[in-house]
Design a protein around this nucleic acid. Structure first.
Lengths: 215, 215, 215, 215
DNA sequence: CATGAATGAGTGTTCATTCAT
DNA sequence: AATGAATGAACACTCATTCAT
C-alpha cells in the first residue's frame, strides 16, 4: 500500500522545473541549507551569496527580499505540496472501502514519516517559523484543516460505521493520530538525525493507535 | 491526587527572591515578554531597555550579554524546575503503590498541562531555541532522561507487574505518553492561547492513553 | 650622491595603483590623516567615514576591521618599503668602494631625513604603535636587522679596514648613528613640524658622527 | 660622582606622603600599571577599579576624571621631578670647576639611565602621550629648556672655555648628548626590558660623546 | 568616605538592500 | 542578467561618569 513519496518530487519540481536560472536555483539551495542549519535570522544574505557562489545582487534579483527567499522555500511545502498530497491520498483511500483501519494507520504513518525524513531541511525551517510567529501555526492549521477536514471526516465516519473506530469527535481522533506520529518525527528532525526505521516505527505507532482508537 | 504546581513557584522564586534589583527584575520580565513574543533574534537589547524602562547599560550590568539574558530565563526552567518536579512526583508515586494507572496518567497530564499553561512564555522561548540548535534538544533530552529514567523505569515496571501496563519497552511507552500530552500542550503554546480546559483535557488524554497502553 | 626618495613612491604606488576604488583610497587617506592626528584609539570609524565622505559600511567593505585599516597603512611602511629601500641603497654603496665614510654618513642622514619628512604621517602612527605594544618594537627591530645586518656589517668592515671607522662592534656603531639621526628626526615628527633643513642637518650630524667614530 | 637617584624618591614622596588614603594610592598604583601596560585609551576605569580593589565611584572621588588620573601620574614626572633634579645637579656642577667633561658625560648618562630604569612605567606612559599629542612634546621641551637652558649654557661655556668642548651652539651639543643617551634608554623602555648594564653603557656613551664633542 | 547600580552617548561592526556598470 | 561596491540604519556592547545610599 506504499505510495511513492510525491512530496519531494513536487517540491523539487517547483524548484528544478521552474523558470529559475541555474544561479537562482543555487541561491534557493543555499538558502535551504543555511536556513535549516542556522535559522533564518542568523543567516545573512551574504552567507547565502557565498555558498551559492553568486553575487549579493543576484540573491535579490529574483527574490526581492530575504523574506521572499523564505517564502519561496516554505510556500510550496505549505500551500501546495502538503495539502495536495494529503488530498490525493485521502481521495484514493475513500474510493477503497476495504482498507483495514490499522493498515490505514500504518500507511499514514509511513507516508508522513517518509515525507518528514525526505524534507527534513524544509521542516526544520518550518518549525522555526511556527515557533516564532503566532500566525504561522494558525494559518498552517487552517490551511490543512480547510483542505482535509471534509475528506478526513468522511473517512473516519466510514471506519466508525465499520465498527473499527471509536465514536469520538473527529478533532480528538485526529489529534491523537497526529501527535503519536509526531512523537516519532519531531525527535528525528530536531536532532538532525537521519536514521529512522520507518517500517518498524510505522508498524509500532499503528499498533498503539489502533489499540487506543478501536471501540 | 492533584499536587500544587510547584513549577511556577520555583521559577518565580528564582526571579523575585533573587538578589536582583527592581530594575534587573524589570529587565528579566521585559526579556521574557519580548523573547516570547518576537523571538530572541528579533528582540534588540534596545527594545528590552525601552520596555523595562531602564538604560541599555543596565541591561548589560547584570546579564553580561544578550545570551546571558536568555540563559537567565531558560536555565531555571530547564536545569532545575522541570527535572526537580518530575523527580519529586515520581518519588511520591513510587511510595504509593495503590495508585491506579489511569489515575496516574490523568495526574501526569494535569500536572504537565498546568505547568505548560503557567509557563507559556518561557516554553515558547524554549521551543524556539530547540528549533534553532541541534544541541539544545539533545541536551534537554539527556538532562531529562538522566534524572527521570530510573524512577520512571521502576514505576512502569510496577504497573507492568500489576497487569495495568502493556509489556513494551520503557522508551516506547514514554514516547506515547509524552506525545499525547504534547498534542494538547503544543497547540496552546504555539497559538499563544490561554484557554485550555485542563480538567477535561487530562481526563480525555488519560482515557486514550489508558486504552492504548493497557495489556 | 643623493638618490631619489623611492620610499614615498613605493608607498603611494601601493595606495594609488592598487585595485582599490576611489572611495577606498579616500578611506585610507582619511585614516592616515586621523590616526596621525588623533591616534588610533581616539579615531572612530565614524570619523573616518565622515572625513572620507563615505558611509560607515564602506569603511568595512575592504578593511574588515579598524585594525585592518591600521595594518593597511603600516604594513607597506614596515614590511616592504623600509627594508627594501635600505637594502637597495646599501647594496649600491657596497659596489662603490671609493665612498668616503663621512660622505656615507651625510648621505645616510639625508636619505633618512627625507624619508621621515615625506612620511611624517605614517611615522607618527608607527611611533604611537611602538609606544603602545611591546611586540611592535621588537618585531620592527628584528625585521630591520634581519634584512640589513649582513650588508651593514660588510660595509662597516670595509670602513674599518680603510682606517676610517673605529674598531667598535657593529651594534654599538649602528646605535650611535641611528640615535644621532633620530635626534633630528624625532623632534620634527613629534612636533608635526615640516621645516627641517635637511641639507644642513645632515651635514651637521655627519660631522659629529665622523668625529665620534673615526679611529 | 654618583648621586643617589632622587627622582624616584621624589616621585614616591608625592604619592606616598600625599594626603591620599590607602585606597586612593591603590587607585594610582593600578592606573600606573595599567596605563603603562595597555596604554591610556585601552585602560578602562572599571579595569582600574578592579585591580585597585575599590569601587568605580572611588576612582572618581579624588581624580575627577580619567584624564585627572593621567595627570596625577605624569605631572610629578614632568613638571617637578625631572627639571628639579637636573637643576640640582647642574647647580652643583657649576660650583665645582674641576670636573672633567668626560666624567660629567658619564655621570649624566648614568643618572638618566638610572632614572629611566627606575621609572620605566611612567616613562612608557609619557612616551605614549608624547606620541599622541603635538602639545605634550612641545610643552615638555619648553618646560625642560626653560628650567635648564641657563644653567646648561653656563656649564657648556665653562667646558668650552676649558678647551674640553667644541665651539658648537648649545642646542646642537645638547641634541647629541640627549640622543646618544636616548639611544640606550629608549630600546630598554620600549622593549619593557629591565636589564641595562648602566655602568658599562654610561662608560660607552660617554666615550663616544667625548670623542665627538672634544674640540 | 566609599559604594556600585544606573546612565546614555558612543563604539566597532553587521547586514539587508540598492544601483551603476 | 549578473555583479559587487556602496549605503545607512541597526545592533550588541562598552565606558566614563554620576549619585542615592
Amino acid at each position: 500500500m506504499t505510495t511513492p513519496n510525491k512530496v519531494t518530487d513536487l517540491f523539487n519540481q517547483s524548484v528544478d522545473d521552474s523558470d529559475l536560472s541555474a544561479k537562482q536555483k543555487s541561491v534557493l539551495q543555499a538558502s535551504l541549507t543555511l536556513f535549516s542549519e542556522k535559522g533564518f535570522d542568523r543567516t545573512s544574505t551574504s552567507d547565502i551569496a557565498k555558498l551559492a557562489n553568486v553575487s549579493e545582487g543576484t540573491v535579490y534579483k529574483q527574490f526581492k527580499t530575504k523574506e521572499g527567499l523564505l517564502h519561496a522555500i516554505l510556500t510550496p511545502a505549505i500551500q501546495q505540496v502538503v495539502p495536495k498530497i494529503a488530498n490525493d491520498f485521502l481521495t484514493e483511500l475513500l474510493q477503497n472501502n476495504n482498507t483495514d483501519f490499522k493498515d490505514f494507520l500504518k500507511w499514514l504513518a509511513q507516508d508522513r514519516m517518509t515525507f518528514a525524513v525526505e524534507n527534513q531541511a524544509q521542516l526544520r525551517i518550518l518549525i522555526q517559523e511556527i515557533a516564532r510567529s503566532d500566525g504561522m501555526f494558525k494559518r498552517l492549521g487552517d490551511t490543512f484543516m480547510g483542505k482535509i477536514a471534509v475528506h478526513a471526516n468522511t473517512l473516519f465516519q466510514k471506519y466508525q460505521d465499520n465498527g473499527q473506530l471509536i465514536q469520538w469527535p473527529m478533532p480528538r481522533i485526529a489529534r491523537y493520530i497526529a501527535s503519536a506520529i509526531m512523537g516519532y518525527i519531531l525527535p528525528v528532525i530536531l536532532r538532525n538525525d537521519h536514521n529512522l526505521d520507518i517500517a518498524q516505527s510505522s508498524e509500532e505507532v499503528a499498533e498503539f493507535l489502533y489499540r487506543g482508537l478501536k471501540p
